[in-house]
Structures are given as C-alpha cells and as structure tokens.
C-alpha cells in the first residue's frame, strides 16, 4: 500500500486492454473478399435477394454501433434516419430521376442533415431522455409523413424505379454489391475513426464528458459528427431498402424496425463491430426462415426476449465475450503455452 506510485509488479497477470489478435484482420479480409464473390458462387435469386437485405440491415446496425458503441449516445432514432432516407431516395432517384451513383450520396446528405438536426435537438439531454427524444423524433417524422399527400400519405408510394449507373437497382445482385460497397465504406470509416484522434475524442466523450472537455475536446461537436455520419449511412440503408421493397410507406419509421436494429445491436454488443455484423446476419437469416416456415408472428416476440435476456445475463452482448476477462485470461494462457510462458 505504501508503494502505490511504483510500477505494479502484477503487470503480467493483470488484465490487459483488449486488442485484436493477429489473426482477426486476416480473417476479416478473407470474409470480406468471399462476401464480394458470393453472389457469383451462389447464383440463386432468392439467396441474393436475402443477401441484399442482410447487407442493408448490417449498414443500419453499424450506424447504431457508431452512435451507441463509439459515441455513447443511446439513440433510438435510427428509424427516423432510415425512413427519411427511404423517402428521400424515392423522391430524388425514383421521381426526379437522378441516377443512384449521385442520388445515393444526395440521400446520404439528407440523412446527415436529419442526423445532425436530431443531434442538435437532443444533445442537451442525456441518457434516458436522449433515447426517448430520438424515439420521439421518429414518431414526429412518421406523423408528418403520414399526413403529407405529397409523400403518398398512409398508403405511401409505389411504382418508382431506383437506378444505379443506368441499371435497375432492384436486381438483387447489383443491390447487394452496391450495399456491400457502402457497408465496406462504413466499416473502413469506423475502423479508421476508432484509431484516430476522433475515435479517442468519442471514447473520451463516452467515458467521461467532464474529463474529455478538460483536455480540450468539444464533446458536442464530436457527438454531432457521430449523429451526422450515422444519419448519412442509415439514410443510404433506407434508400437501398426502397429498391429492395419497391414500396415506401410510413411503416419504415415503425417500432418494428427500431426493435430489430436494437435487438441486433444489443445482442451483438454495442461496442463490438464483428459481434453486430454476425448477429445482423444471423437474425436476418432467422427472420427470413421464420417467414418461410410461417412462424413470422413470433419474430418480434423473440427480438424482445433477446433484448431483455441479453441485457440481463450478457450486458456486453456476444461481442463482449471476446473481451471479457475470463476469455482474455484463457487466450493468454493458451498463448503462454505456445510461446514458452513469456507472457
């Protein structure tokens, strides 16, 4: 107790900050490459259709990771961003006729604006209130859209074409690849940000706003940045969804969507990108199978149960298992065995 200032002698056995193993990046790149050629390997319409939906879900779920996991902003407003993107895509690409190569970026811009707006409105509040304010945002946008004839009212809009580079984006393979492109872009951005100044600023904002400000971090600015980026990508996901569904109606703002993404993010682990991606794929597949087997009415019940049980018994989600002390200790002991116990 007297030498608390001297280096701890227990350094070797102490828990270390989680670090990605050497193998993980290689696995990631291989999986990413396989994902690109997958539609060629498995040339099946239904499969590709499902895959394109999965990719859209992954994008949306990762915006949740960005906001909740990195910035520590517990937002339930993803549906508002997603829905705004869906309507924006129909108006910009479907009705105005701007090609998706440019149009999707305009959709992203709309989403970023919505996200930042949501950020500005809600950032004066914290935690619970912030979660509910962002949720309220969704209800407001839904209510406004439902009552606007211009956007088709409660029936929504059908009979539009979403094009990308001159081709129709409802072709599952193309939709999948375009979605995958945006997904990879988002993954690269998240990974880069995490290792950069902005990532540390977000971490600081999340862990201790007071301390963050004491080292010159404008916490508001970084939260807004997170809202902007999340909004942009959630909107793109919404835009791609219109090409998938060929219809857009106020249900894109619904609690169903919020709940699905929330379940994915919580079960996957808010702080874990791989966890969220894996769970997004698994749950989308599950949902699709449930529909095939006529069990789709149980899907939301199960999502709700997953949220409750995960928060109760596995608060860090499945991704948290990768960094939990016990798993880390086990990894260390295995490594030690391989390297003659240097660690």
């Amino acid at each position: 107790m007297t030498d608390t200032l001297s280096p701890a002698t227990t350094g070797a056995t102490g828990r270390r900050a989680p670090s990605a193993g050497n193998l993980l990046p290689i696995i990631g790149v291989v999986v990413a490459a396989v994902a690109v050629v997958l539609p060629i390997l498995v040339d099946d319409f239904a499969f590709n259709y499902l895959m394109s939906y999965t990719v859209i879900t992954c994008i949306l779920a990762l915006t949740m990771h960005l906001l909740m996991g990195l910035a520590g902003v517990f937002s339930l407003g993803q549906a508002a961003m997603f829905g705004a993107g869906a309507y924006a895509a129909v108006v910009i690409i479907g009705q105005t006729g701007i090609d998706g190569t440019l149009g999707l970026f305009l959709v992203a811009a709309v989403g970023a604006v919505i996200g930042i707006l949501m950020g500005l409105v809600t950032l004066r509040t914290t935690d619970l209130y912030l979660a509910l304010t962002t949720l309220a945002f969704g209800y407001i946008v839904e209510n406004l859209v439902r009552n606007s004839d211009w956007l088709g009212g409660p029936q929504g809009i059908t009979g539009f074409d979403i094009t990308f580079a001159g081709s129709y984006l409802d072709e599952p393979k193309l939709l999948y690849w375009v979605g995958l492109g945006f997904l990879y872009l988002l993954i690269v951005i998240i990974m880069s940000v995490r290792r950069s100044k902005v990532g540390r600023a977000l971490m600081a904002t999340r862990e201790s706003p007071i301390a963050a400000r004491s080292i010159g971090i404008d916490t508001r600015r970084y939260k807004l940045l997170a809202f902007g980026v999340a909004g942009a990508f959630a909107a793109v996901a919404g835009g791609l969804y219109t090409a998938y569904a060929l219809v857009v109606d106020p249900s894109v703002f619904g609690i169903d969507l919020t709940l699905s993404v929330l379940a994915i993010a919580i079960v996957g682990g808010l702080r874990s990108m791989p966890g969220i991606i894996v769970v997004a794929i698994v749950l989308t597949y599950f949902r699709n199978s449930a529909e095939t087997f006529g069990a789709s009415q149980y899907v939301l019940l199960i999502y709700g149960l997953l949220i409750v049980l995960t928060l109760r018994f596995l608060p860090q989600g499945l991704g948290g298992l990768l960094t939990s002390p016990r798993v880390l200790a086990a990894t260390r002991s295995i490594r030690a065995r391989f390297h003659g116990g240097t660690q």
Binding site: F74, D127, L128, G304, L311
Partner: peptide, 16 residues
C-alpha cells in the same frame, strides 16, 4: 449497474 440498460430492458419487455 446501469440504469439506462434497465429502462431499455423494460422497453423490450413491453414489446414481449
């Protein structure tokens, strides 16, 4: 441990 998680949990529970 985390009040916000508990609130989100009650939200999930209401969906259930």
């Amino acid at each position: 441990k985390d009040m916000l998680s508990a609130v989100i949990m009650s939200f999930g529970f209401s969906i259930v």
